[in-house]
Design a protein around this nucleic acid. Structure first.
Length: 466
RNA sequence: GCCUCAAUAGCUCAGACGGUUAGAGCGACGGACUGUUAAUCCGCAGGUCGUAGGUUCGAUUCCUACUUGAGGCGCCA
């Protein structure tokens, strides 16, 4: 007998009267005194459940069927029939239902059939995917990842597996986690008593990467259009709804490109992702619109059909200075934008995701290309309402002398980054790229406000359970 | 890392100038009813009031520390 997913059956993979076998987890059971029970079955393949009708003629009806509770696993075989009830088109009239696994102690089962807060569900991260909310977010996450690859592959990009373990500690993106085989109580030491990393596994100090960008730039200088896509790590003690210690980033890098090319790539990619999610996850998105944020669908449609707002940092400062609003942090040209400024800009003043370009070089990374004015760099951030920065990118400084000068100004090690500097010595070319925060993007798409709820097992300070 | 708030049943919450048996809703369980679908109705069980100290005749309630959680800020994606 053929096996089918709930999604396939609901999409009409088989005609009525055909017999199928279907397995999954029970979302709910309702009994009728007419002598039958209705089982809503989910196998995760789609948002909707499949209704299985179990008559009391089944041999295990009283022994098993009426003992089924939420999230028992079952295997059912039966005929596809048009539904007599109103909630669905088809259902399975079961010939046989086998309970594969009962739920012990349904009275204290953590994911009981009731509303739960996301905070509570985080404490049972291994079980929370059995809720509509987390399952829907998981399916959307998958679509986002798939459509990122889809877009980039269709546009001639190569996926580069940049290393997770790095020895570069000056990427400028925050604190790093150490990678070591040393016994932390008795690390190897040199004659002077300092920790001697020469004796460690890699013979030098190593870390978990905070970004694949520097490495992917090397591949960009031969393959033209490349991207990294994987987990990255920040050891910052960040306690917010938008930071994780382990998170995912997509970092495309394009050669012979300027800031507009970079911005166009970012906006095209985002539009493709949004379209893809609306097409492939319409039921999941309807659920978010109903229970999380009623605007989630309309705002994606708006972006798909419109264009992103784009302003320079200098223009942003002008708007902020003229704003009829008191900010905690005073505004003047040269400040880094604080959350409240970013919020006001994209949430109140502009009301949609906004690209801000050409920031002062003083608070931006060393590798960003300096503009003609000598004060700003060719950077661009995309700010999303409610989330903040989802994209951070720039044109890279391809001029050897300029890059070295900037590194010296910032006291960065030329020796450690010799290979990065080499890229500017041997056939250097203008290039640009950005990092797109996958997790923040999923927050924006789903309307789920906390980044800890859209990744399967979130890692953040004091939390690496499961 | 800083600031603010919180911790009472499986979950979400209420509660008490410090004083006998700490309440509700949801869930679970039992029953009634029904081709049901967040079903509905009735009933029942369920609590070391986060941990450790302190004040007090007496603390779940007041105080201190700690732990954990939430939100805001910073760092950023």
């Amino acid at each position: 007998m053929n096996k089918f997913s709930v999604k396939q059956l609901l999409n009409g993979a088989l005609a009525t009267d055909e017999t199928v076998e279907i397995s999954g987890w029970v979302r709910s059971r309702r009994d009728s005194k007419a002598g039958l029970s209705f089982i809503a079955l989910s196998d995760g393949s789609c948002f909707t459940t499949l209704q299985i009708v179990a008559g009391n003629n089944l041999e295990n009806y009283t022994s098993d069927i009426i003992r089924i509770t939420k999230d028992c696993s079952i295997k059912a075989t039966g005929k596809i029939v048009p539904s007599l009830g109103g909630g669905q088109n088809i259902e399975i009239l079961a010939d046989k239902i086998e309970v594969i696994g009962f739920v012990e102690n349904p009275d204290t089962y953590p994911v009981s059939p009731k509303r739960h807060t996301v905070e509570y569900l985080r404490e049972v991260a291994h079980l929370r995917v059995r809720t509509n909310l987390i399952a829907a977010a998981t399916r959307v996450r998958n679509t986002v990842c798939f459509s990122i690859h889809e877009y980039l592959q269709q546009n001639g990009f190569y996926w580069i597996h940049t290393p997770i373990i790095t020895s570069t500690d000056c990427e400028g993106a925050g604190e790093l986690f150490n990678v070591t085989l040393f016994d932390i109580n008795r690390p190897a030491r040199d004659e002077k008593g300092n920790i001697d990393y020469k004796q460690d596994f890699f013979g030098r100090q190593t870390y978990l990467t905070v970004s694949g960008q520097l490495n992917v730039e090397a591949y960009c200088m031969a393959l033209s259009k490349v991207y990294t896509f994987g987990p990255t790590f920040r050891a910052e003690n960040s306690n917010t709804t938008r930071h994780l210690a382990e998170f995912w980033m997509v970092e495309p890098e394009i050669a012979f490109a300027n800031l507009m090319d970079n911005a166009n790539l970012a906006t095209d990619l985002l539009k493709h992702i949004f379209k893809s999610v609306l097409n492939r996850n319409s039921d999941d998105m309807k659920f978010f619109a109903e229970f999380v944020d009623k605007n989630v669908i309309s705002r994606l449609e708006q972006i798909i059909n419109g264009s992103f707002a784009m302003i320079s940092y200098t223009e942003a400062i002008n708007y902020l200075e003229k704003a009829n609003k008191k900010f905690e942090n005073p505004v003047s040209w040269g400040i880094d934008l604080a959350s409240e400024h970013e919020r006001w800009l994209c949430e109140e003043h502009i009301g949609q995701p906004t690209i801000v370009t050409d920031y002062p070089k003083d608070f931006k990374a060393f590798y960003m290309r300096q503009n003609e004015d000598g004060k700003t760099v060719a950077a661009m951030d995309i700010l999303a309402p409610g989330i903040g920065e989802i994209v951070g990118g720039s044109v890279r400084e391809e001029r050897y002398d300029m890059l070295v000068r900037r590194m010296r100004e910032m006291s960065l090690s030329e020796e450690q980054l010799h290979w990065y500097l080499d890229l500017r010595r041997f056939g250097s070319a203008p290039h640009a790229g950005f990092g797109l925060g996958l997790d923040r993007l999923i927050n924006y798409i789903t309307g789920i406000s906390n980044i800890r709820d859209i990744i399967p097992f979130p890692r953040y300070p004091k939390s690496a359970n499961f």
